[in-house]
Design a protein around this nucleic acid. Structure first.
Lengths: 242, 242
DNA sequence: CGCAGGTTTGAGGTAGATCAATGTCAGTGG
DNA sequence: CCACTGACATTGATCTACCTCAAACCTGCG
């Protein structure tokens, strides 16, 4: 009875919003105790962002951190003359922000309709000092992002246009439709223009590679955004990841 | 007298090799107390690596971590068909290793003659749990490397060959000859082939851009490796960083 | 001297950029 | 219901930056 009671109490300590949160178990929140979770939820606010909404601008000060609850956020860099490069995609339940630095070196923009849960730098700093687990979790994500960035450097520097587009489709398939590994079906979170900026290509080249992959039955397009991949192994091979 | 005595004792607690170490103040060692430093030095070994020596191979297990004491280490990725991309350069006093993962996603190779100070995973893990400062230091370096990787993604994806070579020279100037910011003079740590692999170009294109920059008096070459930059601001502009 | 590794230079080819037109589709309003 | 609009995507024709292939050129070294 005592134990049962404790279970109920401890479960109800987890804030309602968090219990319903799709990002609760994968993200940084997973490192927090129910008490800390309830404290964080009290000090944090939920936001809906329409596709295209900017979260932070390049070089802007970043006084708030966020968790992505739903959707995809793109990280971009722009040169003075307007040339643009997407340097990372973040999926739920990723943490969004740059620890130890108040200026953001990239702009963050919702690529799809997105929900985030955001809180102040101070709130996070407090939680981190009290919970080393949390610091480690953030450290792990940083290293994961570093690995991904370096993978993408190989894609940008050494792959052909077709391999680049295949690599992009592979990346999205793995992150959006991870259940099945022999087949995949998903909605692209990016427009052709965004894909071009992610791959270091032009819109036209991206489009041509899409039609080429379609004609070679590597992908099927139900519309511009919805893609199905009948044979993921084939896509992987075309992406140059052996 | 008492204080003087303490000063001497505490300074002599720092191991001799560490006191003479050029990397002592910038690297992770800076986060350690004299006692911890002496423990680490007891459990670590100094190595000289000739240029070209591999530290770890891509996909190999990495049971040892290192600090770079002197020299430059390149991190590379290779595709199945041999295409290669350098995804990062590490300078003294950087930490070398991938926390939380035993398989390395990249190969690490000494680009120049290099000295490292290496120790086992277990040794570092122990120090990290006892010294949160140290964990934070490593976290900071990971984020710095992430920022650098993303900067380089812009270079790879969106810059012309000339801008790429200028960006490379700028990077080296900043890391090897940081004293002066209006002028620079340094030895290139990489061969033309390595530079090509870093920039996603061919050797020939790199070479042509070098001669072009030389003819336009942006750089002077005393030999293939020694470069002087009379006007760093001009180089910065050519690199597209405004 | 002659050879080897790295670098430069040249001539020609090509993947992807650029420029321009056309197509698709969801709104919106008559 | 159809015409009109605007955002996006596709397709085609041409151009060019960079690649490829090949030869010549250092510079040090047995």
């Amino acid at each position: 009875m005592g134990i049962l009671h404790r279970d109920i109490r401890s479960s109800s300590d987890v804030p309602l919003v968090c219990r319903a949160c799709e990002a609760r178990h994968g993200g940084v929140c997973a490192a927090l105790s129910p008490e800390q979770l309830s404290e964080l939820s009290r000090r944090s606010t939920r936001h809906r962002l329409d596709a295209g909404t900017e979260v932070v601008g390049q070089g802007e000060s970043m006084e708030r951190y966020s968790n992505i609850v739903r959707g995809v956020v793109k990280l971009t860099k722009v040169m003075a003359d307007g040339r643009q490069q997407i340097v990372g995609l973040q999926f739920a339940p990723d943490f969004l922000g740059r620890l130890f630095l108040s200026e953001s070196a990239v702009a963050a923009e919702a690529a799809t309709d997105t929900e985030i849960c955001s809180f102040s730098r101070g709130t996070l700093d407090q939680l981190v000092t009290r919970t080393p687990e949390l610091g480690e979790k953030l450290h792990r994500q940083a290293l994961k992002e570093l690995d991904e960035a370096r993978d993408w450097m190989l894609t940008l520097g050494r792959k052909s246009a077709q391999e680049k587009v295949a690599s992009f489709l592979h990346l999205i398939a793995v992150n959006i439709d991870p259940e099945n590994d022999s087949t995949a079906s998903f909605d692209l979170p990016l427009s052709r223009a965004d894909i071009a900026d992610f791959l270091g290509l032009t819109i036209e080249t991206v489009s041509r590679q899409f039609t080429r992959l379609r004609k070679e039955n590597v992908i099927r397009l139900v519309n511009n955004r919805q893609v199905t991949v009948p044979d993921m192994a084939l896509l992987t091979r075309l992406a140059g990841n052996d």
